[in-house]
Design a binder for these strands. Structure first.
Lengths: 214, 214
DNA sequence: TGTACATCAGTGAACGCGCGTTCACTGATGTAC
DNA sequence: TGTACATCAGTGAACGCGCGTTCACTGATGTAC
């Protein structure tokens, strides 16, 4: 045991409970008792519940955004009129998701669920934090999609990206009770990499559909 | 003024506040003070906060599910090998959404936001209520989609419908701060019927994409 | 090497607060005879 | 028509509870001289 793993124990427990119940519905008492640490330890190490929520996101979004930006750089996308194919962008981004190091078995499903919650639960502080921290990654994504779908109007592209975001954030977040995800699910169906296989062609086809503007 | 409009005043206020903040984050005191009614009136008329949440959904899902089932019947879908086109199914369903009578100007955006919240916030009682009340409507939809996409495997169809649900539920629910939806938005972009115009071809194209199984 | 002090992770108990719900009560309207 | 009672919408105040946060404190480890 390292000299202090209290911080990680809190993050691990909080991640699971937030994903299962949501932010407001998870109390610090639930988190600290699951993590086997003192109630006051959260405020000692993180300062507040809101700061803990942000730390949970930072722990996986940091690596994720680095993977995505590195992948884009490795492919020289956007450099010297090197235009990426939409499918390759989506595949890089979804594959990056699967590569994040996680502390639980179903880490990816939990991350997707958390991203879905971040989108829909009105945690003003969290929205602000995510915008500040990851605006760069998001703008890069928008730029690459723009390069690969020149036929779309800016407005239609905007909406289609929103639709696609919805598909992704929702997918594993709310289909079935999370208990089924946590327990070793009987059906192979819920395996994240399998779902990604289904997701990419769906997204490509939706994003490149014939425009209604035409 | 009718002899008692307290019930409606509560539902109107609750609908707006739930859409804006979420269920757990909205207190009965916020609702009753916005509605200008007594705090105890919620428990008097509805019995509990959970029952109020369900009533808010019932008020618009009732008409919606009737519109959808009637539309399907009018088209004779599924009768005498009368197979609907996927685009027509989606168009009927999204048009039904736009037809629900609402008490506010942005009623449809609010409904979509609420559906998104119902999906993602872990309100066990709400999930149970929706399943009980609207299982029939949902099964009809699944059946029609199955008729119109015979080329998909059951598994891939299942996932694609989940993706599509995600797009719909998310779309207007979380794109921009709701304040912008409530205020007379400067951009015509946020108009629900305009967005539906964009949504349908996206969904059709995604749902009918070439299967990865092939 | 020994002593004094500083730092820091962690703790147990309590704080005030806002929450959903309950309860005794009011006052208006309807009903029976 | 008048009186007695029942029904029902609504109310004001209080209830106990769980919440996030705070605070004084402990004890182990590191540092200075």
């Amino acid at each position: 045991m390292p000299q202090s793993d209290t911080v990680d124990k809190i993050l691990d427990a909080a991640e699971l409970l937030f994903a299962e119940k949501g932010f407001s519905e998870t109390s610090l008492r639930m988190i600290t008792s699951k993590a086997n640490v003192n109630l006051a330890a959260v405020n000692y190490h993180f300062g507040s519940k809101n700061a803990l929520i942000q730390a949970v996101f930072g722990r996986f979004l940091g690596p994720l955004s680095r993977l995505m930006e590195q992948g884009s750089k490795d492919n020289n996308w956007g450099v010297d009129s090197n235009i990426p194919k939409l499918e390759d962008i989506l595949r890089l981004y979804t594959q990056s998701l699967l590569k994040i190091p996680t502390s639980h078995d179903n880490g990816v499903a939990i991350f997707m669920r958390l991203m879905g919650l971040a989108y829909t639960q009105s945690q003003g502080h969290l929205r602000k934090y995510l915008e500040q921290q990851y605006a760069k990654t998001f703008r890069l994504f928008m730029y690459l999609v723009k390069l690969s779908t020149p036929e779309l109007s800016a407005e239609e592209r905007f909406w289609r990206i929103q639709f696609a975001m919805g598909s992704i954030a929702f997918t594993m977040s709310s289909i079935q009770p999370l208990t089924e995800i946590f327990e070793n699910s009987k059906s192979a169906v819920a395996k994240p990499d399998k779902v990604v296989e289904y997701l990419v062609p769906y997204l490509v086809s939706g994003l490149t559909a014939k425009s209604v503007d035409e």
